[in-house]
Write a protein that binds this DNA or RNA. Structure first.
Lengths: 223, 223
DNA sequence: CGCTCGATTGAAGTTATTCAACAAAAGTGG
DNA sequence: CCACTTTTGTTGAATAACTTCAATCGAGCG
């Protein structure tokens, strides 16, 4: 979950491209049930699989040699996570709450039918990451938060009475780390959006979206 | 070119993984010679190929529906650029100076030998983009610039007498856009690095690296 | 030679961060 | 189940950082 609305691909499974209808869904070698805080994988783990989030939410975080940390993405149902680079996981992944994960084995052969699937998935991942670049740069703190909530709304928004609401399974610190801000700034931005009448915060991890259009407009605004 | 030091992969060509030695270099259907400012492709172009920069430098820029622009990456010799997502280019690409580009056709079949190549390339691209996330977030302007110069030094650094130098084919505005800053801030950061004795600027587009270790230390510092 | 564009610098204004205090929620152990 | 501790979230005030607006400088070009 970066800042992308292209959920169709991930939710429906791999695209069956017209130019090769033989591409099928990849084999799933099993399901995992994770407890809150449980690690799915660590940075540097050798890997021959990727994962699909089936339920719950995951946090992907990358750490540099110097100890600098950065939340790279959040994994929501339908998201593929854990793309191995050079046969290794490039970040660590932790469950934010109870989560169900399906394992997609990448097999061993180059002509394996998983290859086109993996290629397509990796290319879509690139597109989603590019979207996230647009959010990280040149936006104010409240615009970043508005963008973030906007994406979450489309990915995990639920009808709530006559309105919409989003649950935030991650901490303020996680959100701050993801958006390149401090937790205090995130907190202030939440307050800001609330005072502007765009959202309501019945609880810290439960956001009611009062003005979806206004939120989207703020997220994409040029000023 | 994001913020990655993993140049080996790109420079040597596709990795010949031990588990499938049949993976070969992809077919190259031709070379292109671009003039300064010439576009290689536009956002939204349909695509069945990727490109490899052979000489020169390219700028990749993404534009939103609202007109917001963002420099996503720079393409240096050895870099693969133009990964199509859903059969379309997701950004526009312009030559920063005279450039030579090789075209890598992605063929039409799923079992084509280009698939493992493309998969590997896309996965490496993901890793490089993750590195760039580390630079965009939570770094000061001079740390961002130091990181940028540090990468350029490793990608395009040349021995210059008894020292090192880097040529910057892009404008200050491009650098600012890439790092999520303003041109004035980039300019001030250059001055800052110069006054700290880390670099010298004989000309605006010609940087001498006086203290490579100090530059690298600043780029990764926690303070 | 004069023009234009890109780069730099200055000063003021805005925004985010830092440090600190407090409040609220979650976890712990009796 | 309640008191206690710890963690997490919010808010305030001061500082630092980046941006904005404006002016200047210099290189490239007609």
């Amino acid at each position: 979950m970066y800042v992308s609305f292209e959920t169709d691909f991930m939710l429906r499974g791999p695209a069956i491209s017209a130019r090769d209808a033989r591409i099928a869904a990849p084999p799933r070698s099993g399901f995992l049930h994770l407890a809150p805080g449980q690690m799915l994988f660590h940075q540097g783990d050798s890997a021959r699989s990727i994962y699909r989030v089936e339920a719950g939410a995951m946090r992907l975080r990358r750490v540099t040699e110097t100890g600098r940390q950065q939340v790279i993405a959040f994994g929501y149902p339908g998201d593929l996570i854990g793309f191995p680079v050079g046969g290794e996981r490039t970040c660590e992944c932790e469950a934010l709450g109870p989560a169900r994960i399906s394992v997609i084995s990448l097999g061993i052969g180059a002509t394996d039918r998983t290859c086109p699937f993996l290629t397509d998935a990796a290319l879509h991942e690139i597109g989603k990451m590019q979207e996230h670049f647009m959010t990280l740069s040149r936006k104010s703190s409240r615009q970043k938060l508005a963008s973030f909530l906007n994406v979450l709304l489309r990915r995990a928004g639920k009808a709530d009475g006559d309105g919409l609401s989003v649950c935030l399974p991650m901490s303020r610190a996680d959100i701050a780390d993801f958006l390149g801000l401090r937790t205090e700034t995130v907190s202030r931005s939440f307050t800001d959006l609330r005072e502007r009448g765009l959202i309501a915060l019945p609880e810290a991890h439960d956001v009611r979206i009062l003005d979806p259009d206004g939120l989207a407009a703020l997220a994409e605004a040029d000023d």
